[in-house]
Nucleic acid binder design. Structure first.
Length: 382
RNA sequence: UGGGGCGUGGUGCAACGGCAGCACACCGGACUUUGAAUUCGUUGAUCCUGGUUCGAAUCCAGGCGCCCCGG
């Protein structure tokens, strides 16, 4: 069994709040911390749900809440439920709706981690006397006294979640513990069995919790009906192939759902908000070589000023690709990739790594290079 | 109202007279704490009526529909 890295330089017996969800990872995290002798308590968010659909919210159904409470009781730790409905709606759901309304593809999980879990919830945990807060994220930290806390990828490359934590700052990381990040998912499941946690066999969570079991287009339809604005689907040559139902329902690189029969698969190359046009093309037209990002977060708290080579991830489930990162100003940076990269999508995060260490995170504002030629959208169909 | 061409799943195309196949789309599953991607799989068709033939998407006749030329 690998050494539990997360205990590095943690005071023995420290008081640790565990953000619980009722799932395997956070439950095992809590059990591990209890086993390590920390003074543990459980804490869980009550998040916003669509009125009338509360039972379908995957993050915090009454069932999940009851399960987490039961696990806490089994571990013999206190458990607190924290209401975060309003702040979650204001920060996350609104961000989600605004992003799609503006024509980008937002990642609400990033915002939730930054503003809900690691701000709102962390503050509650500290108020409740905690020294640290733990979550079930597959990520790792390194604490060396006198140095910034480092954020590392989880050991399990298939489960690594450091990408969604790249927006955390030092004030947050100082208090962060990721007990499961030093283990693989199978190891965690095995431990959950060993601890006899009822969550051991529960399927991993997925999809956006607040969508209430529906798909996001129908959620947009209910909460941002103005996004249902049909317009032309055209090729880079300007030929119209069909009609889209609203740019918000598509994202860069998307293949399914275009409804266009063609001799080969077509993918979304670009969304042109000004002309309400969806630009599509073949697989070999995908791929761009550079991006610029905003909302820069230097994890160490110490921004670089010179360009540097790094491995960069442009969406949650993507490989690391090499590129040159160039800081532009306090808020912005650019990345020039060594090779063209598919599906660089405004609204998603670009996260730069040195080895397994997260250096820098930002929100992609635009992709550049090998961009489809600008053209005038022309209606050619009858 | 002369000539020529074409009618096959939702779309675009294949099939020497011999089990109607492919691509795209659609639908479903897997994967995934975002949207996607990827992957596995299921549906689904010979314009109509006759004729020739052991056997017709294929050959013949007629009908219906569409396209091009008739500068």
């Amino acid at each position: 069994m690998p050494a539990p890295n997360y205990t590095q330089h943690l005071p023995p017996g420290a008081k640790v709040a565990v953000a619980m969800s009722g799932g395997v990872d956070s439950s095992t995290a809590a059990a591990l911390l209890v086993e390590q002798g920390y003074d543990v308590f459980g804490i869980m968010l009550r998040l916003w749900s669509e009125p009338g659909r509360e039972h379908a919210n995957r993050c915090c159904t009454p069932d999940a809440m009851a399960l987490a409470k039961r696990i806490a009781a089994q571990l013999d730790i206190p458990f607190y439920a924290i209401d975060a409905k309003d702040v979650f709606h204001d920060k996350v759901v609104q961000y989600f709706l605004d992003g799609y309304t503006q024509g980008v593809t937002p990642n609400p999980c990033l915002v939730c981690n930054r503003h809900i879990r690691w701000e709102f919830l962390l503050n509650r945990a500290l108020t409740l006397g905690a020294d640290y807060m733990a979550t079930g994220h597959y990520a790792q930290t390194i604490r060396i006294p006198g140095e910034p806390v480092k954020l590392l990828q989880g050991i399990d490359p298939k489960k690594d979640q450091s990408y969604v934590l790249g927006a955390l700052d030092q004030a947050q990381l100082q208090h962060a513990i990721f007990p499961v990040g030093g283990y693989t998912k199978p190891e965690i499941r095995t431990m959950a069995e060993k601890f006899q946690l009822p969550a051991a066999r529960i399927k991993d969570s997925q999809d956006l919790c607040f969508l209430a079991g529906t798909d996001y287009p129908s959620f947009l339809g209910r909460h941002a009906p103005q996004t249902a604005d049909p317009g032309p689907i055209v090729t880079t040559g300007g030929e119209q192939l069909g009609e889209h139902q609203g740019l918000a329902f598509y994202t860069i690189g998307q293949r399914k759902g275009l409804g266009i029969a063609h001799s080969e698969p077509l993918y979304v190359l670009a969304k042109q908000a000004d002309s309400n046009t969806l630009v599509v093309g073949t697989a070999d037209e995908l791929g761009q070589s550079a991006l610029t990002a905003g909302n820069a977060n230097w994890v160490s708290g110490r921004p670089e000023s010179a360009p540097f080579q790094a491995m960069v991830k442009i969406r949650y489930t993507a490989g690391l690709v090499p590129g040159l990162v160039t800081p532009l100003d306090d808020e912005h940076f650019a990345v020039q990739f060594d090779q063209p990269v598919r599906d660089i999508t405004p609204g998603q995060a670009a996260v730069a790594y040195h080895g397994s260490e997260v250096i820098l995170s930002g929100i992609i504002q635009k992709a550049q290079g090998k961009q489809p030629q600008p053209y005038q959208a022309i209606r050619l169909v009858k």
